[in-house]
Amino acid sequence: MRLKTLMLSLASAAMMTACATSPTGRNQVILFSDNQMSDLGSQSFEQMKSELAISKDAKTNAYVQCVTNAILEHVPIQGSFSQWEVVVFDSDQVNAFALPGGKIGVYTGLLKVAVNQDQLATVIGHEIAHVLADHSNERMSHAQLANTGLQISNVALSNQEYRNEIMAAMGVGVQYGVLLPYGRTQESEADIVGLELMAKAGFDSYQSVDLWKNMAKASGGNQPPELLSTHPSHDTRIKDLTAKAASEPKFTGQKPNCSRPN
């Protein structure tokens, strides 16, 4: 779909408010179609691949792909795209993301904190959950309704100002100097859905707790109080994930065996 046509379609979609339900049963306001969000996600991802360094290390790429593939076996088929794409970016950022359209980015810096396949699966499952729960669509819809400057119906990714805001709304804006993180409700929901995915794939769900302990150490204790942050505090996240891990059915199949590079 040409960009001009896409933006006209987005404008038409924004004329009507659609109600939806998230994977955990939460009510959502969704203005844009899956195809429209997939197009925006794909365009954003192509832009990132042209601007950020991509890892050429074969072992690192194979490791990340192995963990991702194990999770994707338990992800429902999506109607707006046929295949997920995984790219490892060569960066010290402790981060990962997934965009509408099935685009997954993992930064090599994350592998220093997610120290085994189970902890990496925690992050990748969490990011995939954001896509499955339409969190980007939800954020962009809220911004459109609130008229906060994100005038999606009139923007193009080639427009630097609004391109940054679109990419931020899809969870990757920090790389471009704009930080619009997912809210606490969305983050907690992605934790729950992501943990379910990794557990179904045979990864150790209790490692999600160890991951966030590692994240807390990596932050150096500089995280703001929970009430001043849009993200759950590390302590809250650890508590909730511990309870969720305890409730997951015991996995009885073949566990993944993804070889972590040295």
Rank of each mutant, 00 (worst) to 15 (best):
Ser42Tyr: 08
Ser42Glu: 15
Gln43Asp: 07
Gln43Phe: 08
Gln43Tyr: 11
Gln43Met: 15
Gln43Asn: 03
Ser44Thr: 11
Ser44Cys: 13
Ser44Lys: 04
Phe45Asn: 02
Phe45Thr: 12
Phe45Val: 08
Phe45Asp: 13
Phe45Gly: 05
Phe45Arg: 06
Glu46Trp: 02
Glu46Val: 06
Glu46Asp: 13
Gln47Thr: 08
Gln47Val: 03
Gln47Ser: 13
Met48Pro: 04
Met48Ile: 15
Met48Ala: 12
Met48Lys: 09
Met48Arg: 07
Met48Leu: 15
Lys49Ile: 07
Ser50Ile: 10
Ser50Ala: 12
Glu51Trp: 02
Glu51Leu: 11
Glu51Gln: 14
Leu52Asp: 11
Leu52Ile: 14
Leu52Trp: 14
Ala53Lys: 11
Ala53Asn: 10
Ala53Val: 12
Ile54Thr: 15
Ile54Pro: 01
Ser55Arg: 08
Lys56Gln: 14
Lys56His: 12
Lys56Glu: 10
Lys56Ile: 06
Asp57Lys: 01
Asp57Asn: 04
Asp57Tyr: 00
Ala58Ser: 08
Ala58His: 08
Ala58Pro: 01
Lys59Asp: 09
Thr60Asp: 01
Asn61Tyr: 03
Asn61Lys: 05
Asn61Met: 03
Asn61Gln: 11
Ala62Thr: 11
Ala62His: 10
Tyr63Gln: 01
Tyr63Glu: 03
Tyr63Ala: 05
Val64Arg: 01
Val64Cys: 09
Val64Ala: 03
Val64Gly: 02
Gln65Ala: 04
Gln65Arg: 14
Gln65Phe: 04
Cys66Phe: 07
Cys66Gln: 07
Cys66Lys: 09
Val67Glu: 08
Val67Gln: 00
Thr68Ile: 08
Thr68Glu: 01
Thr68Trp: 05
Thr68Cys: 06
Asn69Thr: 13
Asn69Met: 11
Asn69Gln: 15
Asn69Ala: 12
Asn69Leu: 13
Ala70His: 14
Ala70Gln: 12
Ala70Asn: 15
Ala70Val: 13
Ala70Arg: 12
Ile71Met: 02
Ile71Glu: 03
Ile71Gln: 01
Leu72Thr: 15
Leu72Ser: 05
Leu72Tyr: 05
Leu72Asp: 06
Glu73Phe: 00
Glu73Tyr: 04
His74Cys: 04
His74Ile: 05
Val75Tyr: 03
Val75Asp: 05
Pro76Tyr: 03
Pro76Phe: 04
Pro76Ile: 07
Pro76Met: 09
Pro76Lys: 07
Pro76His: 09
Pro76Asn: 04
Ile77Asn: 05
Ile77Gly: 01
Ile77Val: 15
Ile77Cys: 08
Ile77His: 14
Gln78Cys: 08
Gln78Asn: 10
Gln78Met: 12
Gln78Ala: 09
Gln78Val: 09
Gln78Tyr: 05
Gly79Tyr: 03
Gly79Leu: 06
Gly79Gln: 10
Gly79Lys: 03
Ser80Asp: 15
Ser80Ala: 15
Ser80Leu: 04
Ser80Met: 08
Phe81Met: 09
Phe81Glu: 02
Ser82Phe: 10
Gln83Trp: 01
Trp84Asn: 04
Trp84Ser: 09
Trp84His: 11
Trp84Gln: 06
Glu85Arg: 12
Glu85Thr: 15
Val86Glu: 06
Val86His: 02
Val86Ser: 07
Val86Tyr: 01
Val86Leu: 04
Val87Arg: 05
Val87Glu: 13
Val87Gly: 03
Val88Leu: 02
Val88Lys: 00
Phe89Gln: 05
Phe89Arg: 00
Phe89Met: 14
